[in-house]
Amino acid sequence: MSTNRRAFGQMGYLAVAIVCVAILIFPLYWTVVSSLKTQMQLFSSHPSIIPQTPQWGIYANVFLQQWPHLITSLIVAFGSLILALLISVPAAYALAQFRTKAVPVFLLVLLIVQMIPGISLANALFIIFHKVHLLNNYFGLMLADTTYAVPFSVLILRAFMMSIPKELIEAAKVDGTGDTGAFIRVVLPIIKPALVTASLFSFLFTWSDFLFAVTMTTSTRIEPVTVAIYQYIGTYGSNWNQLMAFAVIASIPAAIFLIVSQRYITAGISSTGLKG
């Protein structure tokens, strides 16, 4: 009797949850549906909730038109990801393992810089980059985008490294390899999951970035996906099916990310309390 009632209650929760999730992800569903409709179907006064004649050709069109922007975004995202890891991995090890007065100072600074609005940085960076010729430059954009990834990566990698038993590291040091040896032979292999998380987030931060992409470029030479979509709205404002197909394509990394590592995402948010 009571197990029956519990099972019934569970089904009730499930039903409510399904309705909530359906409402929340309806905009995404609508994006996909709209991306598969013809212009005529889009303008119909009674839009159908499912696409009757899916227009896959729209995707081919958008892809053929926009692939240079996808490549640009990939280059910038991978570049800033590598830069961010090179800086944050050793620093996270030091902040997790060393007991110096510098540790809380670094943590405070990392926390504060994460709170600074991007536009406040972009303003000054524009003038600085102009002086050192880093505007309209791949390296410049990568560098600007690392401002999202570095503080986040250091904190999440450190949180993970704190959980490595001290004895393990001490044992490696006794073998005579010192910090560097212990770091390479013991720490790096253990922190692989944290490295994956930090890399995925770093990639996604840069891929999603619009602020630096639009401020650190003044020509069309380097135009990441986000800027391309923004320009597209201005130029072909009513081609909603193509625009929605473009939106879907721009969201592919997020989808892959979610499939690969849902547990990493949740861990990432709750262990550092931070979003982009």
Binding site: V21, I25, P27, L28, I233, A247, S251, A254
Partner: peptide
């Protein structure tokens, strides 16, 4: 309840896609 983890994962999607894309979707 059943499928709890799966449904929770779906809720994350709006947060993971670029905000510029979200803006475009709502504009439409």
């Amino acid at each position: 309840f059943p499928a709890n983890g799966f449904l929770r994962a779906l809720i994350l999607v709006p947060w993971l896609i670029p905000q510029l894309v979200s803006g475009t979707i709502f504009k439409w």
